[in-house]
């Protein structure tokens, strides 16, 4: 039998139709994985609900969260006019919990956001430049790191006095070192990849390399880490308010509410626990969401 040269038909039949499969970028594939993760989706939904309701609080037709009433103090849950009862000064609990979310969420997100900007920039600089610059930045961070975060926050707030701005400032300072450290380590890692060397070898400026090649690869992990810090920030802010170092009464804020309802714990324990429940739900949602994000993004695609 002689060997025939392959006919064109066979060759064509053999070549698997290379469907110009819409090539998936990194973020679309992260999104696809997230959509298949029910826990993260539920957490994101709950957070969205909390955030939206506190932003839209004035439009929801709630009772006045500041209006006190001596006769309606400590109504239990399920009272006809007050769905979640009233607090020790007779203010509507439901309204106060919703309005309280405004400050509590703000205190959770804002310091982390500020720390992300400052700590992230410092960390990426330290990681990319390396050498003495890295040494200088990271040793300063280590000094802050030496104090437990709760103690640092309390002492800073104590020194600067109570108030929203000071709490914001002290929490930001607390979160800069950990974010800086994470940013530095992921940047150092990315910096070691050959594609960064290839970019340097192409003669591009350091800023261009950071913008095109470094940021895209480090922002993900840094953001995931920052998300996990939001819950810590909420708890810390609540703690500071509880200790009287944060938000001042009569502002509704979950930590402060927990403090003022302390005395009611024997009268109506469920009521007294409500702000705590809110803190618990939001922070656990932030944590689980950060875990989900990490899982979705941590792929050797």
């Amino acid at each position: 039998m002689a060997i025939q040269s392959p006919t064109v038909d066979i060759a064509a039949a053999l070549v698997r139709p290379t469907v110009a499969s819409a090539s998936r970028g990194y973020w679309p594939s992260v999104g696809r994985r997230l959509r298949r993760d029910p826990v993260t989706l539920i957490c994101a939904g709950v957070l969205l609900l909390v955030v939206l309701s506190s932003i839209a609080a004035p439009l929801l037709g709630l009772a006045d969260p500041y209006k006190t009433s001596m006769i309606r103090r400590l109504y239990p849950l399920g009272s006809p006019s007050h769905l979640l009862g009233t607090d020790e000064l007779g203010r509507d609990m439901f309204a106060r919990l919703i309005y309280g979310g405004r400050l509590s969420l703000f205190m959770g997100v804002m310091p982390v956001l500020c720390a992300l900007l400052i700590g992230g920039a410092l960390g990426i600089t330290a990681g990319f430049v390396g050498g003495k610059v890295n040494m200088a930045i990271m040793r300063v961070m280590d000094v802050f790191y030496a104090f437990p975060s709760v103690l640092l926050a309390i002492s800073l707030s104590g020194a600067m006095g109570a108030g929203t701005e000071n709490t914001l400032l002290s929490l930001t300072l607390v979160f800069i070192p950990p974010i800086c450290r994470v940013s530095e380590s992921v940047t150092t890692q990315v910096r070691g990849f050959d594609f960064v060397d290839a970019a340097r070898a192409s003669g591009a400026s350091a800023l261009t390399i950071v913008r095109v090649h470094v940021l895209g690869n480090v922002l993900g992990p840094i953001l995931v880490y920052a998300t996990s810090l939001i819950s810590v920030a909420i708890i810390l802010a609540a703690g500071l308010s509880f200790l009287g170092l944060g938000v001042k009464p009569p502002e509704p804020e979950w930590g402060l509410m927990l403090n003022t309802l302390r005395q009611a714990i024997y009268v109506n324990p469920v009521l007294a626990a409500l702000p705590g429940v809110m803190i618990f739900i939001t922070s656990i949602c932030f944590n689980l969401m950060s875990d989900g994000l990490r899982a979705a993004m941590d792929v050797k695609a």
Binding site: Q4, P6, T7, I10, A11, A13, L14, R16
Partner: peptide, 25 residues
């Protein structure tokens, strides 16, 4: 080399083979 996601119906090397025959696939 071929993608191993599918079980090949014919000879796996056929798409790269110079001597491919109709019955290879």
């Amino acid at each position: 080399p071929p993608d191993l996601a599918e079980v090949p119906t014919g000879c796996s090397f056929a798409p790269r083979c110079k001597f491919v025959q109709p019955n290879c696939i």
